[in-house]
Amino acid sequence: MTHMDNPSISVVLPLYNHAHYIASTLQSVLEQTSPVDEIILIDDGSTDNGFSIAYKMLRDEPRATLLQQENCGAEKTLNRAIGLSQSEFIAVLNTDDLFLPTKIERCRNIICNHPEVDFVCGGIGIIDEKGGRLSDGETVEWLQRASAFQKKCRTLDLAFLNENSVTSTSNMFFSRELWRKCQGFQPLRYCHDLDFLLTALCHHCVMIDMEQTHILYRVHRKNTIKEDLLKVRLEVAAVMANTMKTNSARLLDAERLSSDLPLISEILRSKNNAALLATLQLLRNNCSDRHDFYTLLKNPKTSECLIQQFM
């Protein structure tokens, strides 16, 4: 079947030290109103018993493949899982987040009715460590600000250059072909999702389905994004530098300077990283592609030098 009729869908789950959450995460996949065709779970060198919990839940599930590996990072784990999957479309789910019951059904319907769309993301609910819904707090307020800015933008490129309001790879549903064109997830620990999103905008049609909540994003003390704020800022600036090189025509239109420039100025002021960004653009110009650029920044000597100089 083609994806216009009944698209096949694989859910990929990169598991790392989420023993407290993995059962509810998997339950949210198994309880979908439109069942997925395949479940690929890879444990990325966890030190807890999360894989054992997952194995007990899925050992009799014919759609499931479970693997373990030495720790190598989220982006490599995602790329391996997607490479092993067989479906036309991929839904990512981090093992501390949850799908809403109609997530897959909604994405299937969108693809069937809009065959030009190759990437879907939707509304987000925020939950705490115990699964309780949050209506206020830092993450909720950040998402509200990001959504408000997006409404002012003529393109999603500008909106996502400001903030990744998609929030997480858990909110990403995309075609295998798009993943190939984007050359997979890049070697970034914190911003591989933002890079993939901005690269996807250059290749295919992205739909933001805000009419329905797709996922519940869990806020807890061990969220990866909270590990090292300086390195997070460096990766954000690197993705911005790459985007300004590769998406420049989509970010700034000479015929729309009066509307685009205030937004770009607001983005740059909010990041407060003009010197770092200019330096990263010079480094990006000396690299053959974004993969080489991000690999350069993963070198501890390079990243430490940039952090010491500009942060």
Score class of each variant (00 low, 15 high):
10 S>E: 11
11 V>I: 15
14 P>K: 07
15 L>Y: 09
16 Y>W: 15
28 S>F: 14
30 L>V: 14
30 L>C: 11
32 Q>P: 09
38 E>I: 10
40 I>M: 13
41 L>I: 15
42 I>L: 15
44 D>F: 08
46 S>I: 11
61 E>A: 03
66 L>G: 00
70 E>L: 04
73 G>D: 04
76 K>E: 11
78 L>W: 04
78 L>H: 11
81 A>C: 07
82 I>A: 02
88 E>F: 02
94 N>K: 01
95 T>G: 05
96 D>Q: 06
98 L>P: 01
98 L>R: 15
101 P>I: 12
101 P>E: 14
108 R>G: 02
111 I>V: 15
111 I>L: 14
112 C>P: 00
113 N>I: 01
118 D>K: 14
119 F>N: 05
122 G>Q: 10
125 G>I: 00
126 I>W: 10
127 I>W: 02
128 D>C: 10
140 V>K: 12
143 L>D: 05
144 Q>F: 03
148 A>F: 02
148 A>M: 11
153 C>N: 09
154 R>E: 10
164 N>S: 08
176 R>Q: 15
186 Q>M: 14
188 L>S: 07
193 D>P: 05
193 D>T: 12
195 D>W: 12
196 F>V: 05
196 F>T: 04
203 H>N: 07
209 D>L: 07
215 I>F: 07
218 R>V: 06
218 R>I: 10
219 V>E: 14
222 K>I: 13
231 K>L: 06
233 R>T: 06
246 T>F: 03
248 S>K: 12
251 L>G: 05
252 L>H: 06
257 L>G: 11
260 D>Q: 07
264 I>R: 08
265 S>Q: 15
266 E>Q: 15
272 N>I: 00
277 L>V: 07
277 L>M: 05
278 A>P: 02
278 A>D: 08
278 A>I: 00
280 L>G: 03
281 Q>P: 00
282 L>H: 07
285 N>F: 00
286 N>H: 10
288 S>G: 01
289 D>W: 01
291 H>P: 00
292 D>C: 08
294 Y>N: 01
295 T>H: 00
297 L>H: 00
300 P>H: 04
302 T>C: 12
303 S>Y: 01
305 C>Y: 09
310 F>M: 02
311 M>K: 02
